[in-house]
């Protein structure tokens, strides 16, 4: 009845309560437990506690993906800053379509969010197998088409 996912949702909510309040008073801790249980019960009734609502199965793989994403963000931050600060500001902006090979909605959202989070590229519209991307420099679209980020997100979401 109580799956591991439901239990982990309760733990996450309760830990958030404890860390945000920071007051270790028995009454407040009990209130936190009751509130977390209530939220878990409502989420259970709405049946949103699944791989999409609480994707804990991704957490370990996320640890290998995040450092790479951080590095990409640093590199493109520098590139976009250079474009903005250059006095002539020659732009080669435009949009294009990038293939997305993810099979789950969570994977697709992760890919689109990673594209948007990286300065210099923004996801304009998302379809199950392609994403329309706008880039400050068209080279950014070519880089995405080469598919390294796509492959890494595909590897992260695991089997379908």
């Amino acid at each position: 009845m109580v799956s591991a996912r439901t239990f982990s949702l309760f733990l996450v909510l309760f830990a958030t309560w404890l860390l945000l309040s920071g007051i270790w008073d028995p009454f407040l801790i009990a209130s936190g437990a009751v509130a977390s249980l209530l939220v878990v019960y409502i989420a259970h009734r709405m049946s949103v506690i699944d791989g999409e609502g609480h994707p804990i199965h991704l957490s370990w793989k996320l640890l290998t993906y995040l450092p790479w994403l951080t590095w990409q963000i640093v590199v493109s931050n520098i590139a976009v800053c250079r474009t903005i600060l250059s006095p002539s500001m020659k732009l080669d902006a435009g949009s294009g379509w990038v293939p997305a090979s993810q099979t789950t909605p969570v994977g697709l959202v992760t890919f689109a969010n990673s594209i948007t989070l990286t300065p210099g590229t923004v996801a304009l519209s998302v379809y199950p197998d392609t994403i329309q991307v706008h880039a400050l420099d068209r080279a950014g679209i070519e880089e995405l088409k080469a598919g390294e980020m796509n492959r890494r997100v595909r590897a992260m979401e695991g089997k379908a």
Binding site: I84, L85, A93, L117, T118, P119, G120, H134, L136
Partner: peptide, 25 residues
């Protein structure tokens, strides 16, 4: 720099890139 980008860049879609510097870096 991000605010400068939001002001200087020529249209909405390019301004989005300027804005994303503030959100990340």
């Amino acid at each position: 720099v991000s605010a400068l980008g939001v002001i200087r860049l020529p249209d909405l879609f390019t301004r989005l890139h300027g804005a994303s510097i503030a959100d990340t870096g």
